[in-house]
């Protein structure tokens, strides 16, 4: 199978986010970058469907530094990478989807993989947007994915349980935790990755459909209180929950 994985570079989840002087974007200095955690499931899944005559292509839209995250994916076992290079990646998912979709039109893939969510902007949007633009079927939040012949069968997570579905190829999924155990890069994998093809293509972004007016921190929570120690504090906890918080 020819598989394409869309990969996003995001700040490490342990990062303390700072806001830059414009007040509408995060401050990038001192940020550690990683492969979006959900995209690790996507890469791992693509590798299991590659088969002997297939390939796994990593497609990322981002600044030049994104080659580092693409190399990580190549070290996990992917075959080649394409970076759609911009100065700064858009926060508007529509811009991202439009650029990715136009690159994907030339790739003739069988299977297309996205994470369910970029853990930065939390858009959860690029996968379904790209599928809609390309007019291919896609199911999101997938936790089990099987391909037989020209048909894919999936289980997807939904409120209160799992939905079971199917779709014809070519098709896409967005990955949810539970799909697989991500395959970490091995030392030989890292060595091999250095020699794998990685193409850098500068691209222009279409106009943004959104304007960020302001970025701020959520208000601090009012200071809490320790109601006591051990099981003896339980009656006091119940009292404050009833009388102050009024949640019981």
């Amino acid at each position: 199978m020819k598989c394409v994985v869309c990969l996003k570079r995001v700040p490490d989840t342990g990062t303390r986010i700072k806001i830059d002087s414009s007040g509408t974007a995060i401050d990038d200095t001192d940020v550690e970058w990683i492969v979006n955690p959900y995209d690790e499931f996507a890469i791992t899944e693509a590798l299991t469907h590659r088969g002997s005559d297939g390939e796994v292509i990593i497609l990322a839209l981002g600044p030049e530094e994104t080659t580092k995250e693409i190399r990580t994916a190549l070290a996990m076992g992917a075959d080649q990478g394409i970076l759609l290079q911009v100065q700064r990646p858009p926060t508007d998912p529509l811009q991202t989807a439009q650029v990715l979709a136009s690159a994907l039109k030339e790739l003739e893939f069988d299977l297309l993989f996205f994470g369910c969510r970029g853990v930065d902007d939390d858009n959860c949007a690029v996968g379904p947007m790209v599928a809609s633009i390309l007019d291919i079927p896609l199911l999101s939040d997938v936790i089990q994915f099987d391909v037989e012949g020209s048909k894919a069968t999936v289980q997807r997570e939904t409120e209160g349980g799992h939905e079971i579905g199917n779709m014809p190829l070519p098709c896409g999924i967005t990955t949810q935790k539970g799909l697989n155990e991500p395959k970490l890069p091995s030392l030989p994998g890292i060595m091999k990755a250095k020699k794998k093809p990685l193409e850098i293509r500068p691209v222009e972004l279409p106009d943004s459909s959104l304007e960020i007016v302001e970025m701020s921190f959520p208000p601090d929570r009012p200071p809490g209180k320790i109601v006591g120690e051990g099981a003896d504090a339980v009656p006091e906890l119940i009292r404050v929950l009833q009388e102050e918080a009024k949640v019981l």
């Binding site: 700040p11 986010i17 806001i19 995060i26 853990v119 930065d120 902007d121 939390d122 106009d207 943004s208 459909s209 959104l210 304007e211 960020i212 007016v213 302001e214 970025m215 701020s216 921190f217 959520p218």
Partner: peptide, 19 residues
């Protein structure tokens, strides 16, 4: 004008649609 969290709630955005 919409308010939404990003970075899983570490920041809040005020956003306006342009289209």
């Amino acid at each position: 004008v919409a308010t939404r969290p990003a970075y899983a709630g570490k920041v809040l955005l005020k956003i306006r649609p342009k289209t």
